[in-house]
Design a binder for these strands. Sequence first.
DNA 1: CTTGAACTGTTCGATGTCGAACAATACGGT
DNA 2: ACCGTATTGTTCGACATCGAACAGTTCAAG
Lengths: 170, 170
Amino acid sequence: MEAGKIDEAKTEEADDGSDPGRQLEAGAAETTIAYKLRLAQILAFRAFEERLAERGRAPRYLGLLAIIRNHPGQPQSRLAEAVALRRSSLVTILDILTREGLTERRPAPGDRRSNGVWLTEQGEQMVEELLAESQHHDAILTAGNTAEEIKTTLRVLDRVIANLRASQGA
Amino acid sequence: MEAGKIDEAKTEEADDGSDPGRQLEAGAAETTIAYKLRLAQILAFRAFEERLAERGRAPRYLGLLAIIRNHPGQPQSRLAEAVALRRSSLVTILDILTREGLTERRPAPGDRRSNGVWLTEQGEQMVEELLAESQHHDAILTAGNTAEEIKTTLRVLDRVIANLRASQGA
DNA sequence: CTTGAACTGTTCGATGTCGAACAATACGGT
DNA sequence: ACCGTATTGTTCGACATCGAACAGTTCAAG
């Protein structure tokens, strides 16, 4: 796999800040999905959280809350896996969300080890509001792209996630 | 913007774990780019870092290192902006990378406040190796997608990043 | 020249996530 | 019925990132 030669005789010359308005590029790394994925995610997450800062920590954990809404009563370990966080991390998160009155732990009927996690009435309402916000937020994110391009991107991301889950579970 | 009604008469019935092998879905949030973006990024980043754990912290900061290679001598503040991290965070990161012998701070000639950041010889080599690894990693990530789909995704992500940078800088 | 605003790198306390450990519980094989 | 292994939620210490503050420096306006 011979990487294309990108030699530029880079002997000790600084990049003077010509073209001052633009962002610095990462060269070869730019062509990689993982790189742009990270950049986009950090910025998107930060923007969403900042815009809804007054609503407590629910915006940060909207993904989790949405899953709980769609699958009430699931044990914590399955929820952690679903949002790609660790079991131990979810403990604190659920403590917070429960303290804010959005979620609830109930002992699982069949298994005395595990808790089922549920949304409270207030949690249901919060999720509904935040989901509307997230649609709006996504519209801003993806401005300038066609519906077809967005659909393709969603499909690609789905496959990426599936690939990673497969290789990790092994 | 009337959100489509997705009522399912969800009165207090638990989601029994039918279809046990599959992942839990997030319902309406699934259609949003931000959600999948986050999931994919977490998994991709984690996988990449785990696979290259023996190489110190360089894999985590490969994006930064690649930027430094392409733009040697830039001040820390510009680098921070390029990788979407905060100025204060970059201090620790550069401390680490410098301690590992990959980067170097040199006083900027024109401005006594700022440092120019450079790669050491060892840093150059590390970046080259890791970039090759990252190409391989990306190939695994994106398996099952056509070259056209990937190209479209990269283009969409570029626009997403640009949109977020524009709305944030304001 | 002087002065005030803006910028640079830095420190420090707060918060989020992780991995490794642990006790309690479930379960399969013999 | 018993034992070893898995699984679940949890705690705890390590580390990463953040935001707010700060001193040193630059620079433009007067």
